[in-house]
Amino acid sequence: MKQLNKLLMIAFIAASFAFPCYASKIIMEGSTTVLPIAQRAAEVYMDNNRGVDISVRGGGSSVGIASLIDGTCDIADASRAIKSSELEKAISNGQDPVAHVVAMDGIAVIVNPSNKFSALSKKEVKAIFTGQISDWSQLGKGSGKIVAISRDSASGTYEAFGELVLEKQKPRADALLQASNQAVAQTVARTPGAIGYVGLGYVNSSVKALEIDGVMPSRETVLAGTYPVGRPLFMYTNGKPQGEIKDFMDFIKSAQGQEIAEGEGFVGLK
């Protein structure tokens, strides 16, 4: 028995040498929209700065901000601004969330490539997603039941879409809820009558992005603010970032960091 204890102790000491402690560890959590930027930026940053460990998790804007409030993450990714209720909770927890705009995102309204429409007005999109219009024939072209595909209500894209397009009206109850941007795009690509919405970075050749109010969602139109369904993307830190977190935030805002955001399909600020 004694010998076993000794052996365990030796093993434990050996193990603690074998796994070196990183100089610093940054935990990022939050929006799945911001996730690709965060992930790629973290990878590049870690390649250039040995000894820094950045772990990136999704979960959604609300989850990220909740973690920041609880102090379980250092940077919260969010595709929407912090809510006043969250801010109050953070302050009562002794935290001080500071916003950093890291890129711009356009929400593209997408349909199946076989769809006859290539443009809709924001009003029509709103009418579809609030349930006033349920058949393509009601819009004058095509026919068949409209299959509205939405993000689940935890997603920042859902909330942003609700504010930008639905103007806080109730979304239709029979909209399909999908857990990720990719899932929305895939379902739209497979379903002829479908309409959905995704971050601009998730538009690919398998779906068709619609002009909204005559403006095509693109880098230029989102940055210029002419595209009606655009929004800034945020990272929140607790207080002004310092040390390693500051270096990382500076990196994301640098030309190289913005290039990464562009590479992931978002609109860089520079």
Binding site: S62, V63, A154, R172, A173, D174, L176
Partner: peptide
């Protein structure tokens, strides 16, 4: 879809799915 199903071919949201997808937020 959290709507009252009218046919077997309507998308639906059973109780377990609602709990699983909403508890996180």
């Amino acid at each position: 879809a959290a709507a009252i199903p009218r046919s077997f071919f309507d998308p639906v949201r059973p109780m377990t799915a609602a709990i699983a997808s909403e508890m996180g937020e």
